[in-house]
Amino acid sequence: MTSISSQVILHPAVSQSIKLGSTTLGRDKLYRAVQYFSRFLAWFLLSRGHKEQAAKWNALKSHLALGRKLMRIGKPVEHLQAVLRAVQAYSASETREQITTIGRQLAYFGYLTYDTIVWANAVKFITLKPDTAQKINKTSNRFWLAGILLSITHGLLKAGRLANEAKKLRSKSSEKDIGTEADRELKQRTLELARSGTRQQFIIDILDVWVPAANLGLVNLNDGILGIFGFITSVIALRQQWHVAGKK
Rank of each mutant, 00 (worst) to 15 (best):
I136N: 00
L150V: 00
Y111W: 10
T190K: 11
L10I: 05
L162M: 02
T127V: 10
E192A: 14
L84V: 15
A245C: 02
G74M: 09
I206P: 00
A92G: 07
D183Q: 09
L157D: 03
W119Q: 02
G67N: 14
Q200V: 08
G67C: 06
G197W: 02
I204M: 01
Y90M: 04
L80F: 13
A237G: 02
T198H: 03
L84F: 10
A59I: 07
W210P: 03
F125W: 12
H63R: 06
L150H: 01
V118H: 01
A86K: 04
R72C: 04
F37H: 09
L216M: 01
Q188A: 07
G217V: 11
T153P: 01
I136Y: 02
W210D: 03
D177E: 12
D131E: 13
D208I: 00
E52K: 08
H79Y: 13
V235Q: 01
E185Q: 13
L150G: 09
Y90H: 14
G230Y: 08
K61I: 02
I99L: 13
W43Q: 15
K56D: 13
L156T: 06
T100F: 11
V123C: 10
R170V: 04
N222K: 10
G224Q: 08
R195S: 12
L238E: 01
W210E: 03
V34D: 02
G26K: 02
V77C: 07
S62G: 06
E52Y: 04
K19Y: 08
Q240Y: 08
I126A: 06
N222L: 06
N58K: 15
I136R: 00
S6R: 14
G49Q: 00
R195M: 11
S171M: 08
I228E: 06
Y31G: 05
I102A: 02
T233K: 08
I9W: 09
E181Q: 05
K69R: 15
V14C: 09
R39S: 06
R72F: 05
S173W: 14
R142P: 00
D28A: 15
A107N: 10
D205R: 00
T95S: 15
L41R: 07
E175S: 15
A33G: 04
R48Q: 11
S62F: 12
A133V: 00
G103R: 07
V235L: 11
G217Y: 05
R104P: 03
Y31Q: 14
K172D: 12
T116P: 03
N164A: 12
H50Y: 12
A92Q: 06
S22A: 07
G227L: 01
Q240S: 13
K172C: 11
